[in-house]
């Protein structure tokens, strides 16, 4: 009897067992291991020695680059996240329009997402080159002398932001599917009432997709902190370390300077920062995210109130 009951409760877990194993072995395992490593001086080819909180203390007290890289990453996230979301939403609005050949546009906007980060970096390296890059050539046609994007520290971070906005496609697609799900009659009713397209966007589309905005906001905050490929290949952290992102800093500590313990400590600090930011976003979400189920409930009550 007891056994049967146990089987019954265990069955669903058996079904997700493959995933659980993967999670334990490939995510939780390395995660815990890296936490352990972060308390060691862990050179690559010699034996590790325990140093307690030494790595963390060094990071916060001695290593100037830690704060510099953290600032750069925060700056990047602060510009990139909103910009990327606005572009994604704008494109998503465009590809929901009933235009001829919209499928072609949809594909065109999505293609950059499929290209590997390495190829994107090389491509943008050519586009942004100060002397013979395409971008500066185009700017010169309208009489603007473009900056040396990858040489001038003042412009380099913007160059990286432009290049990373290239991969906006997947976020656009998520917005697109959500917008497509909004029933057409809501818009019809609104336009009968004389609402302009802009009014429709701000009063119907935007509130309905707030859960998706929340999702995209969180994932793009996380991915912006993890940005490594692009800076590694496009700028190498330069010019003058102006794009030496926190991710690159961590990577170089691990695989260039072979300080695996220190790099693990770096990674854990980043993890905590991301955790904190995500928690902050979630906390704030009750003020601006609008779930349909709640909305439905509230609306009904109102109607009911009027009738009685």
């Amino acid at each position: 009897m007891k056994q049967k009951k146990l089987m019954k409760t265990a069955t669903p877990y058996l079904f997700i067992l493959p995933w659980i194993i993967g999670f334990l072995v490939f995510t939780i395992g390395p995660l815990i291991f890296s936490l352990i490593m972060s308390f060691f001086d862990w050179p690559l080819t010699a034996d590790p020695t325990f140093r307690g909180f030494g790595n963390y203390i060094e990071m916060f007290t001695k290593d100037k680059q830690f704060f510099k890289s953290l600032t750069i990453s925060l700056k990047y996230a602060a510009i990139f996240v909103p910009l990327n979301m606005i572009i994604a939403l704008f494109l998503a609005m465009l590809i929901t329009q009933p235009v001829k050949g919209v499928k072609i546009f949809r594909t065109i906007y999505y293609i950059p997402t499929v290209i590997s980060g390495v190829a994107v970096s090389i491509l943008w390296g050519w586009i942004l080159n100060g002397d013979y890059g395409v971008l500066n050539y185009l700017l010169s046609l309208i009489g603007i002398e473009g900056p040396k994007w990858l040489v001038d520290p003042a412009w380099a971070i913007l160059a990286v932001i432009i290049a990373s906005a290239f991969g906006v496609g997947s976020m656009m697609l998520i917005f697109y599917t959500d917008i497509k799900n909004i029933p057409i009659d809501v818009y019809e009713a609104a336009s009968i009432d004389g609402a302009s397209p802009a009014r429709q966007f701000f009063s119907i589309t935007l509130p309905i997709i707030t859960p998706t905005i929340l999702f995209n906001l969180i994932t793009s905050i996380i991915s912006s902190f993890q940005q490594v490929t692009l800076v590694m290949l496009l700028t190498g952290g330069g010019p003058l370390k102006s794009t030496y992102f926190y991710g690159l800093y961590t990577y170089n500590n691990a695989f260039k300077h072979h300080k695996l313990g220190y790099a693990s400590a770096n990674a854990w600090v980043m993890f905590i920062i991301i955790l904190f930011l995500t928690a902050l976003v979630f906390k704030s979400s009750s003020a601006w995210v609008f779930y349909e189920t709640e909305a439905g409930g509230a609306g009904k009550k109102k109607k009911g109130g009027k009738k009685s």
Binding site: L6, T9, A10, Y13, L14, L17, I20, I21, L24, V25
Partner: peptide, 19 residues
């Protein structure tokens, strides 16, 4: 509580397979 137990059992099984 039961649920927790079964999760633990599965987790252990998982680790055993791994090791």
């Amino acid at each position: 509580k039961k649920r927790l137990v079964s999760i633990l059992i599965l987790a252990m099984a998982g680790t055993m397979i791994f090791s």
